[in-house]
Computed example of a mutant assay.
Amino acid sequence: MTSAQVEPMTAPESAPPPGRAAPGRNRSTPARRLVPYGYLSPTILLVVVLMVVPIVMVVGYSFRDNVIIQENSVFAGFANYAEVLTDLDFLAALKNTAIFISVSTVAHLVLGLAFAMMLNTRLLGGVAKAVFRIVYILPWLFTIAVIAVIWRLLLDPSGVVNYILQTLGLVQEGVNWLGDPATALWAITFVNIWSGYPFFMISLLAGLQGIPGDLYEAAAVDGASPLRRFLNVTLPQLRPVIIGMAVLDLIWTSQQFALIWMMTGGGPLNATEMLSTYTYKLGFSEYEFATASAAAVIVLLLTMVLAFFYVRQQRER
C-alpha cells in the first residue's frame, strides 16, 4: 500500500484591511505628488506677487539712489540707511512709536483683563452681562475713519470733552488736545487704547471661561484669598494668552497709520510722528523713495523681531 503524496499547505493570502491598498499598489506617481501643490498654487502665487515681490523691490530700492528714473539709478550702498538713522525726525518718530505701542499694549491688557473678569463674574446676571458685553464691544465695531472723526470732534477745544472738564472745574478754558505738542501724543494714545481694548477683552474672556473651576475650589479649600487665587490660578492659566496677545498687539500698534494720519497727520511739530507716518511722508510727500525704502526695511526688521518672539512663544505653547 503506497502512501499518498501530501502536497504542502500554503497559507491563503490575507486581504488588505479596508481603506488600505495592497502592498506594492500604494506607490504614488509623480503626478499624484504634485496634486497638493496644485491646490496651493493660487495662494502661493498671491503671496509671491503681493508680498515677496514688493518686499524684494523695496529692499533693492533701499540700496540705490534716484529710483524714480531707473536709467539714472545708481548703487548707494548703506548711504540711505545712514541718512535715515541719523535723521532727527526718524529718531523722534522712533521715540514716539515706542511710547505709543508700550503704553497702548499695557493699557489694552489691563483694561481687557479687568472687563473680562467683570463679565466672567457670577455676581452679574445673564441680562446684565449681555448689556455690558454690547457696551464694552462697541469701540471695536467702528472703523478707524469713524473713530478718528468722532474723537476729533470730542477733543476739539469747544468739544464735549472740554465742556465736561470745564463743568467739573478741572480746566478753565478749552484745551486743544490735538494741537498742543504736550498733549497730542497722549490724546491719540488714549484713542488707540479706547478702540483696541475690546479685542483683548474677548480673548481674555475666552481664556477665563476655559479655566477649570476645580482649581479655584481647591485654592479656596486651602484658604487662599481672592487675591492669591488671582495671582496663583488666574494669571498662570492666562499666561500663554497674555503673552501671545501682547506680542501681537505690539506688532499691530507699531503699524498703526490711519488713526494717526487722520487725527494729527504726525503733528504738531512732529509730536505724534510715528515710523509709519514718517515713511509715508518720505515716499509720497517728499518723493524720496530710496530713503523711504530704507526706513521701511528698518521697520520691517523691527517687526520681524517681534514676530520671531511670537512664533517661538506659539511653538512652545
Rank of each mutant, 00 (worst) to 15 (best):
L275V: 07
L302S: 15
P139T: 08
V233C: 11
W140Y: 09
A116Q: 01
T279F: 03
V247W: 10
T234A: 15
L155F: 09
I242S: 05
V221D: 03
V74M: 15
A219S: 13
L231A: 14
V135F: 01
N96K: 06
Q172H: 07
F115I: 10
P36E: 09
I55W: 07
F115V: 08
G210N: 15
L154P: 14
P16W: 02
F132L: 13
N192L: 02
F115A: 04
A187P: 10
R317I: 07
M262S: 02
V106P: 08
L88R: 13
F289H: 00
T279C: 05
M9R: 12
A31L: 10
V233I: 14
V84F: 00
L282M: 11
P36W: 07
A4C: 02
R317T: 09
E83T: 14
Y136Q: 07
Y37C: 01
Y310A: 05
F78P: 01
T2P: 06
L109T: 04
I137N: 03
Q237S: 15
L275D: 04
I298L: 15
Y163H: 11
P236I: 05
D87A: 05
L306T: 15
V191P: 00
G60Y: 13
I202W: 02
L138F: 03
A246P: 09
I251A: 10
M245P: 04
L88P: 13
Y280T: 02
M304K: 12
A130M: 12
T29D: 07
P42E: 06
S14W: 02
T189Q: 02
T183G: 05
S276D: 06
P226N: 10
L123H: 02
S41C: 05
A218G: 08
F75K: 07
L40K: 13
A93C: 09
A292Q: 09
H108G: 06
V48K: 07
I150S: 04
A294Q: 01
L282N: 10
F230Y: 09
K129H: 08
G179E: 01
V127I: 12
S104L: 11
P236A: 02
I193C: 11
G77N: 01
S254L: 15
T10P: 15
L91A: 11
I134C: 06
P23R: 14
Q313I: 01
L94E: 03
L109G: 05
L235K: 04
G125Q: 08
P139W: 04
P8A: 12
R32V: 07
G196K: 00
T121M: 05
G244R: 03
I242W: 03
M118Y: 00
T272E: 07
A114Y: 00
V47T: 12
Y81P: 05
